[in-house]
Amino acid sequence: MKILAFAGSNSEVSINKKLVTFAASFFPDDNVEILDLNDFEMPIYKHERELENGIPQLAKDFASKIDGSDLILMSLAEHNSVYSAAFKNVFDWVSRIKDRKHFGDKPIFLMATAPGNGGGKNVIEVFLKRAPFSGANVIAYFSLPNFKERFEEGQGITDEEKKAEFHEKLAAVKAHFS
């Protein structure tokens, strides 16, 4: 199975990238590609820019990565209760590619984490509302609040309750392909 994994963040020290990389580690027998949104940095979407220059090749490349995958692992950063500007911009440009749904009807394991108690729940809620219109087939979603207290590099999720919930959601994702 071909798995595409990325964090909806352009932070060099993204906790969402740490979470999505951790999730990807549970697919050792699959072909997993972890993307960095910094490799898809484009001018901020503007209609006039699209008319003048067309759709950037990086947006087409990102869409091609989606199209070549069987499963998407995505952990969204929450900035002011919604997507990060970096993710939103890639999302906006991909949406302009003719005759495609943003996420190509691919199954998605949606995640979010944050340093505070909310754990990215707002961005998950925003994405879940948008998902049906964007060709995003969210199989399961998971939120990890208080990242610094509940996650250790090399160990992963350390909070037993959240670890059990994560594994339950992961099992649902894997069962989707059985």
Results as ranks from 00 to 15, higher is better:
Glu50Pro: 05
Val126Tyr: 14
Tyr83Pro: 02
Gly104Arg: 08
His167Asn: 12
Asn38Phe: 00
Leu73Glu: 15
Ser95Arg: 05
Asn117Asp: 10
Gly120Cys: 08
Asp99Glu: 14
Val20Tyr: 04
Ala171Gln: 13
Phe147Gly: 07
Lys148Cys: 10
Met111Ala: 06
Glu125Asp: 14
Pro43Arg: 09
Arg96Gly: 08
Phe26Lys: 08
Ser84Cys: 08
Val20Trp: 04
Ile124Asn: 04
Asp29Ala: 01
Ser84Glu: 12
Lys163Leu: 13
Lys148Phe: 12
Glu78Val: 11
Ala112Pro: 06
Asn38Tyr: 03
Ser84Gln: 09
Gly118Ser: 10
Glu153Phe: 04
Gly135Glu: 04
Glu125Val: 04
Ile66Arg: 02
Val13His: 02
Gly116Thr: 05
Met74Ala: 15
Phe147Asp: 14
Ser64Arg: 12
Lys88Asp: 14
Phe147Leu: 04
Phe22Asp: 06
Lys148Ile: 14
Phe62Lys: 03
Leu110Ser: 12
Leu128Tyr: 02
Phe91Gln: 12
His47Phe: 15
Phe27Lys: 11
Ser11Glu: 06
Lys60Gln: 09
Pro28Cys: 03
Ala5Ile: 06
His167Glu: 15
His79Pro: 04
Lys106Ile: 07
Ile55Thr: 06
Ser84Pro: 10
Phe109Thr: 10
Lys98Ser: 14
Lys174Ile: 05
Asn146Trp: 01
Pro115His: 02
Asn117Ala: 11
Asp36Thr: 02
Phe109Pro: 15
Ile108Lys: 13
Ala140Glu: 15
Lys121Pro: 10
Leu4Gln: 05
Trp93Val: 07
Ala136Lys: 09
Pro145Cys: 12
Gly120Pro: 08
Ala136Ser: 14
Lys88Ile: 07
Glu160Leu: 13
Phe127Glu: 09
Lys2Val: 00
Arg150Gly: 09
Ala5Leu: 05
Gly54Pro: 06
Ile3Phe: 01
Thr113Pro: 11
Ser81Leu: 13
Leu76Arg: 01
Lys65Asp: 02
Phe127Val: 05
Lys60Val: 07
Glu33Trp: 00
Glu160Trp: 00
Tyr45Phe: 15
Ile34Asp: 04
Gly135Trp: 03
Ala136Met: 07
Ala175Val: 00
Ala114Pro: 14
Asn38Glu: 08
Asn38Asp: 11
Glu152Phe: 00
Pro43Gln: 10
Val32Glu: 09
Lys88Tyr: 07
Ala59Gln: 11
Lys60Tyr: 13
Phe27Cys: 04
Leu71Met: 08
Asn137Met: 12
Val126Ile: 05
Val90Ser: 10
Met111Leu: 15
Val126Ala: 09
Val32Trp: 10
